[in-house]
Simulated assay, not measured.
Amino acid sequence: LWNNQTPPPPRFLDSRKGYSIVMNTWKRYDLLKQSIKHYSSCPRLESVHIVWSEPDPPSDVLLKYLHHVVKSKSKDGRLVKLKFDINKEDSLNNRFKEIKDLETDAVFSIDDDVIFPCSSVEFAFDVWQSAPDTMVGFVPRVHWMDSLEGNSNKFIYGGWWSVWWTGTYSMVLSKAAFFHKKYFNIYTKEMPSSIREYVTKNRNCEDIAMSFLVANATGAPPIWVKGN
């Protein structure tokens, strides 16, 4: 567990060492506007990609407003890029589709209803740079074997209070986490299709799938960072 009292690793100034936000949204335009307005001012943000899976495309009014907000909030002579990634199918797997024009290695995956201060996001990014193959996130969860069933293939999922009570965690959720862009490709093309089918059918668990995918690829646990 890292927190803001822990000295972060040194910062890197290379442009590819900035990060991109990939934000999942669904018919919550006020929340989307609020989140974009907030995160556009974060110092090392390079671009924002909005994962859009609604049946109708974003309205001209919404597009105009968000582009104006991003431009007005960009600081120090930089201009944060804003793009809508339009999907025909409504599936939570869309949030992990490969993005061809992603210019940064670092991705900050976030839901439209979750806001952390830029200082917390920047700190988590520093931590991620020290371990760029793993996931670094703000929302920890835990799982353990279901001993009552006596089945080594069945596990129990524990929420925040399980983490608080046991003092342990085994994953961080992608609703607020950094990871390398290469995992988009692995999730879509290499992860067993049965997992993606489960996610689409049940409209759930894509965050668990991504956390386990990264853990399997690295053989290492995620890093939980405390943020406000």
Rank of each mutant, 00 (worst) to 15 (best):
K37G: 08
F125V: 02
V214M: 14
I50Y: 00
D14K: 13
S152L: 03
K73F: 00
H143V: 08
L79E: 11
N87H: 14
W144T: 08
W26D: 01
G18I: 08
P43N: 09
H49K: 05
K71W: 01
G137K: 13
W2H: 13
M145S: 00
F96V: 05
E197N: 15
W161V: 15
P10E: 05
N87L: 10
R95L: 14
K83I: 04
D60I: 00
S53D: 12
K71V: 02
L79C: 12
E46Q: 15
V22F: 05
S193F: 12
V127M: 06
S59K: 04
I223F: 09
H49L: 02
F116S: 05
N185C: 07
E149W: 06
K81Y: 01
K64V: 01
V69E: 01
M191Q: 12
S91P: 07
Y198W: 09
S41M: 06
K75F: 09
Y183D: 13
L173R: 09
S15L: 13
P221Q: 10
F212L: 11
T166K: 08
P10H: 07
W160R: 10
V139P: 00
S72P: 01
L63M: 04
K182I: 15
V127T: 07
P57R: 00
D90A: 14
P192S: 09
A131F: 13
A131G: 09
L32P: 00
L148V: 02
N93I: 03
A220W: 06
R78F: 00
D60R: 04
P55E: 06
Y169N: 00
W224M: 11
G18R: 12
H143C: 10
K154V: 10
A217C: 15
V214T: 15
I195A: 07
V225Q: 06
R141K: 11
D105L: 11
S147W: 03
Y39M: 06
D14W: 06
K37W: 02
V48E: 02
G167M: 01
S53Y: 07
A220L: 13
H68V: 00
D14H: 11
D105R: 14
V142D: 04
W2S: 11
D90I: 12
R203H: 09
G167N: 08
G18H: 09
R16Y: 08
R44H: 09
K64F: 04
S174A: 14
S47D: 04
L173H: 06
R44Q: 06
L173D: 08
K175V: 14
V163H: 01
T6S: 13
D30Y: 01
S53W: 08
M23Y: 02
V80M: 02
W52C: 07
H38N: 13
V69F: 03
